[in-house]
Design a protein around this nucleic acid. Structure first.
Length: 156
DNA sequence: GCCAACGTTGGC
DNA sequence: GCCAACGTTGGC
C-alpha cells in the first residue's frame, strides 16, 4: 500500500467539506502540475492512504487522513471552458490532467502543524518533500517510515 | 502584504 | 536549447 500527502486550501476544499459530502467522497481535481499529475496518473492505487494537509491558512499542517478510492482518470474539468481549471490545449482524446477520488477516513486527533513537523526536518522527516525549501508540490509520496512517525506524533 | 522559490512561457 | 519575464504558491 502506498502513502501520500495531499495539499489543499481549507477555504477551497477543506477536510470538513469532504467529511460533509453524502458519501464522504470527492474527486481530487484541479491539479495542474506535471510532477503531481504523473503521481496521480501512474502511481496512486485504490486503497492507498494520504495525509490531508491544509495550506495558506492560520496554522498550516496535517489535519486528517483520506483514502484513495479510485485510481487516476482524466480530470474532466480541463474540458469545460467555463470551469476554473479549463485547459484549451487538452482534449478528451488526449487528456493532459488527471484526478483520483478520495474518501474521508478521519481527522487526526489534533492538527499536526508544519512548524512542528519542521522540528524533525534533520531527523526522521529529512526526506519528506513538504519540508524541503521552496517545495510547492500539492501531491507527494510519503514513505512507510515517515507515515508511522507522523502518526505517532498524534498522541504527543 | 511581502517575498522567496519555483514552474511555465515564449522570443531568439 | 537558452534564459528572461512572468505568474503562482505558500509561509510568515
Amino acid at each position: 500500500m502506498g502513502y501520500w500527502l495531499l495539499k489543499s486550501e481549507p477555504d477551497v476544499f477543506g477536510i470538513d467539506h469532504l467529511k460533509d459530502r453524502p458519501d464522504q467522497t470527492e474527486p481530487w481535481d484541479g491539479v495542474r502540475n506535471y510532477q503531481a499529475r504523473n503521481m496521480l496518473r501512474d502511481q496512486m492505487r485504490a486503497g492507498d492512504l494520504a495525509f490531508l494537509y491544509h495550506s495558506s491558512c492560520a496554522v498550516p499542517g496535517i489535519v486528517g487522513i483520506v483514502q484513495i478510492v479510485r485510481e487516476g482518470y482524466p480530470d474532466v474539468s480541463q474540458f469545460d471552458p467555463d470551469a476554473r481549471y479549463y485547459d484549451p490545449k487538452s482534449s478528451p482524446a488526449n487528456p493532459r490532467w488527471y484526478r483520483v477520488d478520495v474518501r474521508y477516513k478521519r481527522h487526526t486527533k489534533r492538527v499536526l502543524p508544519l512548524a512542528e513537523l519542521r522540528t524533525y526536518a534533520d531527523g526522521p522527516l529529512a526526506e519528506l518533500p513538504l519540508l524541503r525549501k521552496g517545495n510547492r508540490l500539492s501531491v507527494m509520496p510519503v514513505t512507510p517510515g515517515q507515515w508511522e512517525f507522523i502518526l505517532a506524533l498524534e498522541n504527543r
